[in-house]
Simulated assay, not measured.
Amino acid sequence: MLYPKKISKIVLVIQTFNQSNFKIVCDTLAAGDADLAAIITTCGYPPMWSRLNTFETLVHIILEQQVSLASALSALNKLKERIQEITPARVLLLTDDELRACFFSRQKTAYVRYLAEAIVSGYINLESLAGLPDENIRAQLTALKGIGNWTVDIFLMFVLHCADIFPAGDLAAINALKRVKGVTQSTCREQAAAIAEKWKPYRTIATMILWHFYLASPKPSK
């Protein structure tokens, strides 16, 4: 096993990750967890999923709520095709019918409008969120209708690169964890989150390894 060779390169616990330390953290996790090590050995390192800190990104994450990634991307691209640049001001110029023509559900039409209005009014400043503690970011964003903990988790993980987030509401992560750890399908989210405690302070990167496994593996038959 080669993983321990890189552990010494992380002297202090990192709060955020980037391209220069991402694989080192993967190796650190693998050195302490044989199941994660097996994923990296079999599937390679996971992508370091990352998105820009923009209104468009939050719209994208909202669209991804409880639907396939392909469906969400289709709606985002349809919106981009209509207004070219996805900004709060341009979205607010669209009627509900125009947003529905972009494959937005009634609920997500309302959610995106609330977000756009919050940014235009100055209630939310996405750039300033980057300097706040995680709990403050969560409090500000979840105060908006349609933004719950899963949406904030993905924002913290993909946009701000916070190193220690486990999205307990993410079905792909939960199902991958169950398969990797060999626990029963009846294991609840709270129990899965408790298992993930072992991966502190790098639960975000552990989750990305789980997603990588989930995407690379054939789905079990029902």
Score class of each variant (00 low, 15 high):
19 Q>W: 05
48 M>P: 07
3 Y>I: 01
63 L>G: 00
150 W>L: 03
107 Q>H: 12
60 H>L: 08
33 D>E: 13
57 T>E: 08
191 Q>D: 14
198 K>N: 09
106 R>S: 13
94 L>H: 02
184 T>R: 13
4 P>H: 06
31 A>I: 10
52 L>N: 11
139 A>W: 12
29 L>Q: 00
65 Q>E: 04
139 A>T: 10
49 W>V: 12
32 G>Q: 02
61 I>P: 04
51 R>G: 00
74 S>E: 04
149 N>G: 02
85 E>I: 13
209 I>C: 03
82 R>N: 02
113 R>H: 07
207 T>S: 13
191 Q>Y: 06
213 F>W: 07
173 A>K: 03
48 M>Y: 10
137 I>Q: 04
67 V>N: 02
138 R>Q: 14
16 T>A: 12
7 I>Q: 04
115 L>K: 01
147 I>E: 02
152 V>S: 01
22 F>Q: 01
221 S>R: 06
114 Y>P: 00
98 E>H: 04
80 K>Y: 07
106 R>K: 15
186 S>P: 04
199 W>E: 06
53 N>T: 11
61 I>A: 06
122 G>Y: 11
110 A>L: 08
19 Q>T: 09
73 L>V: 00
201 P>A: 06
87 T>V: 05
93 L>N: 05
118 A>T: 11
95 T>S: 15
123 Y>F: 10
31 A>Y: 14
158 F>E: 05
12 L>Y: 08
195 I>Q: 01
104 F>Y: 05
36 L>G: 06
127 E>S: 13
189 R>C: 07
34 A>Y: 10
25 V>H: 07
211 W>E: 03
129 L>R: 03
174 I>V: 15
207 T>N: 02
37 A>C: 11
